[in-house]
Design a binder for these strands. Structure first.
Length: 773
DNA sequence: CAGTGAGCGAGCTTCCGCTTGACTT
């Protein structure tokens, strides 16, 4: 017999709450939603006024049975899911599925997990808000309609197994359009002039205007040879810097990416661990709000550690579109826990959260900005030196926020004291060629930032959305080598002018998001036929209607009907009228053979075609795959033709031919009928024999190290070195070696024991056959 | 597993948002 059953969404939360509530309460978790639309069809019966068909998935059946049993026994059931649209729907689904008697069912919400807040919630129960539930149903059904009607069009018109959706398709669009901006970008150069003037400390100054070309730059530097430099004025201005708000899911992902290079999903996995261990509050939130308890605890630590003047109470307002304030910001549960046990990554992330939260309750930093204007005689140009001194560090004592902008910022140094009218002695004046910057590509985290700004997606879906667009092959996360760029620098030093031609590396990328050809083709297809759905404000527009439903001003079935009727018509029209899309581009004619050259998406990815299929004369075209980093959109005729030079023989090694080619798994070296993959930075069109031999030897070494142990009397049992360390291979299956075992010291009998203990072992997956994973 | 790009057809793929494990050759 249970007096009171409380159901929350997360088991970690259940554990905490149970402690507060005492023996009359049993707290259980629903583990999120307990049922969802059937996946067999649309999951919605159009003819029955959009009646949803909800199904309890197999992995939830056991849980639902348990909850049913517990709720039947309970005298009172408290539905304590989150206070937002999804939380309300979870409560409603629970009430429906568990067939809860309304008389003994109460809906409660609380915003912080403290004893007072929970007891207070229990004192103020309410019923289920059916309008809010209906707005969730509309959201869910609209997403299903978009996803399950658009995806099949892509299967027919582009490629099987592709997908489209309200969120993912916009994410892909952002990346495609960014790439096109970059492709269209023309960099231009200008000259930046810097001057170094003598003082107690040298003054670094920059010319207030950039010079457009080398002629102007040379003329100015020439002029400086005889010019005098006079301090025109010195101004000092106090400025302040305020701390950023505490973390939300998206800002945590951004900072962890900038500071530690964590991927978005890495950050979430680590944060989940911290949450389950009770070190931080919930990690999927869009709120920057801190509870009264947290504000108080932060104050105590700040005052005792740094003193009164470092504390500044701040309550931040959540500003992102669609924010639903169901939780607090991400913060430490106990501020006095400065360090936690755990992995290095867990400690780093915790430390970041601790510092960021604390900083948000600290005083502004007080700075003094000094500007010195320096006049150049007989010239309209002026040098400007700026310096910044921290007068009071405030929150900077614990936290400094990183930025995405990695361009070098000059002039933050300390400046010597100089007076207006004072003449300055130049040490060195240099005009250096600089270039306008193309827009930066998205990282995972900066894409999340952009999506959040547009109000698209939720904290719980940012990481999965990125996984999806990567898994579909729409987007690639890659490093790129930069290219060398020449630039000129004109330097005046010791009365002499010299011109230096230098080179620098530019355009290198690390872990950036690039669109693939298929991503671009799918995006262009959707843009042509379903422009509204993948427009940047589609989500914002439908959110307005969901809000109206939540307020009870609109019926959800009516909203869905108004959306679905025209949408479905468009789906049918597109299915009938649009062509099969291959993203084909005709590049021109091969000057040697006179045959046409084109590029398109083929069965196995992007492909260049030389010549046409001439069945009458039994002439077949030639095909060649594109190399990594090449795009259909930007491939030139020359690049296309050079792809036909593969495979090519580049020499001999140990009396056998060394051949370079591109196969199913990318570029390879073939030697003595063995294959060795080229590395990321190797170009199959230019690789030389020496490098190829290096790869062959490297491959041989790996091969040798692969076998740790074989047994003379039983060759079927092998101890091998794999991607995740040593393992045992036997009869075509693989077996894990228990942790702490020295693989090199394994005896034959021990191996057999391990094999026996693990039953069938795991069969290595052969490479994907048609359509199957 | 690596010089792939024939053709047909059955059967399958797919969304977003809540939540954790399971499990990795």
């Amino acid at each position: 017999m249970i007096e009171n059953l409380v159901i929350v969404e997360s088991p970690a939360k259940a554990k905490t709450i149970e402690k507060f509530l005492g023996k009359q309460f049993v707290v259980k978790s629903s583990f999120g939603h307990i049922r969802d639309l059937s996946k067999k069809n649309l999951g919605v019966e159009i003819a029955k006024n959009y009646k949803p068909e909800y199904i309890i998935s197999d992995d939830k059946k056991k849980l639902v049975d348990e909850l049913k049993k517990a709720s039947a026994e309970a005298q009172q059931v408290w539905l304590a899911s989150d206070e937002d649209r999804e939380g309300e729907a979870i409560a409603w689904h629970l009430a429906e599925v568990l067939k809860l008697d309304p008389k003994k069912t109460k809906r409660i919400v609380f915003h912080e997990i403290t004893k007072d807040a929970i007891l207070n919630a229990i004192k103020n129960p309410r019923g289920i808000d059916i309008n809010l539930v209906n707005s969730q149903q509309a959201r869910r059904i609209l997403d299903r309609m978009v996803g399950f009607e658009l995806s099949p069009i892509l299967w027919k018109k582009v490629k099987p197994s592709l997908s489209a959706g309200r969120v993912q398709s916009v994410a892909v669009r952002l990346i495609v359009e960014k790439e096109r901006e970059i492709i269209a970008f023309n960099s231009s150069s200008f000259f930046r002039v810097t001057g170094l003037f003598k003082g107690d400390v040298d003054i670094k100054a920059e010319l207030s205007s950039k010079l457009p070309n080398i002629k102007e730059a040379t003329r100015f530097i020439e002029h400086c040879k005889t010019a005098t430099f006079k301090v025109l004025d010195v101004t000092k201005k106090p400025t302040k810097k305020s701390p950023p708000p505490p973390f939300t899911t998206s800002t945590l992902q951004q900072e962890a990416s900038r500071k530690f290079n964590f991927s978005v999903s890495q950050t979430m996995t680590i944060a989940q661990k911290l949450y389950e261990s009770g070190y931080i509050t919930y990690m999927r939130t869009d709120s920057v709000n801190l509870s009264a308890t947290a504000l108080d605890a932060a104050k105590q630590i700040i005052v005792s550690e740094f003193g009164d003047k470092y504390h500044h109470l701040r309550q931040f307002k959540t500003k992102s579109k669609g924010a639903q304030e169901a939780h607090e910001a991400i913060r430490p549960t106990y501020f006095d826990k400065v360090k936690i046990p755990g992995s290095a990554a867990e400690q780093k992330l915790y430390d970041l959260i601790w510092k960021r939260t604390l900083a948000s309750q600290m005083s502004d930093a007080q700075l003094e900005k000094t500007t010195i204007n320096i006049e150049v005689s007989k010239s309209e140009h002026q040098f400007v030196a700026t310096g910044e001194v921290v007068v009071f560090d405030g929150f900077l004592k614990v936290y400094f926020e990183s930025t995405d902008d990695d361009s070098e910022e000059g002039g933050k140094d300390l400046l010597p004291s100089v007076k207006a009218g004072q003449l300055l002695d130049p040490k060195e004046i240099a005009a250096t060629e600089r270039f306008t910057q193309r827009p930066p590509r998205y990282t995972e985290a900066s894409l999340v930032k952009k999506l959040e700004e547009l109000g698209i997606g939720r904290p719980s879906t940012y990481a999965p959305t990125i996984s999806t667009i990567l898994a579909r092959g729409y987007v690639l996360k890659e490093d790129r080598q930069g290219v060398e760029r020449k630039y000129t620098s004109i330097v005046l030093k010791n009365g002499k002018i010299s011109q230096l031609d230098k080179t620098e590396n530019t355009g290198a990328e690390k872990s950036k998001l690039f669109p693939s050809d298929i991503g671009m083709v799918v995006n262009d297809f959707l843009l042509e036929y379903f422009k509204e759905i993948i427009s940047y404000n589609f989500t914002a527009n439908v959110e307005k209607e969901f809000d109206e439903i939540a307020l009870g001003n609109m019926e959800w079935t009516k909203m869905i009907d108004q959306f679905y009727k025209p949408f479905h018509k468009l789906v049918e029209k597109t299915t009938k009228e649009s062509d099969y899309t291959k993203g084909e581009r005709v590049l021109g004619v091969d000057p040697v053979s006179g045959k046409p050259v084109s590029v398109r998406i083929g069965r196995f990815g992007p492909v260049v075609q030389l010549g046409e299929n001439d069945t009458a004369n039994k002439i077949k075209p030639q095909f060649a795959s594109l190399l990594k980093g090449q795009l259909i959109e930007t491939l030139t005729l020359e690049e296309a033709l050079s792809l036909f030079k593969l495979p090519r023989t580049i020499g001999n090694y140990e009396d056998k031919e060394v051949v370079i080619g591109v196969g199913r798994f990318g570029p390879y070296v073939r030697h003595n009928s063995k294959f060795y993959s080229l590395k990321k930075d190797d170009n199959p069109l230019t690789i030389d024999l020496a490098r190829a031999i290096e790869l062959i030897e490297e491959g041989r070494k790996k091969e040798r190290e692969k076998v740790i142990k074989v047994f003379e009397h039983e060759e079927k049992v092998q101890v091998l070195n794999g991607r995740w360390g040593p393992y045992i291979a036997y009869n075509g299956a693989n077996y894990k070696i228990p942790k702490g075992t020295d693989a090199h010291a394994l005896a034959y009998e021990e191996c057999l024991k391990i094999i026996k203990n693990q039953g069938e072992g795991t069969k290595p997956k052969r490479f994907a056959k048609k359509g199957k994973k």
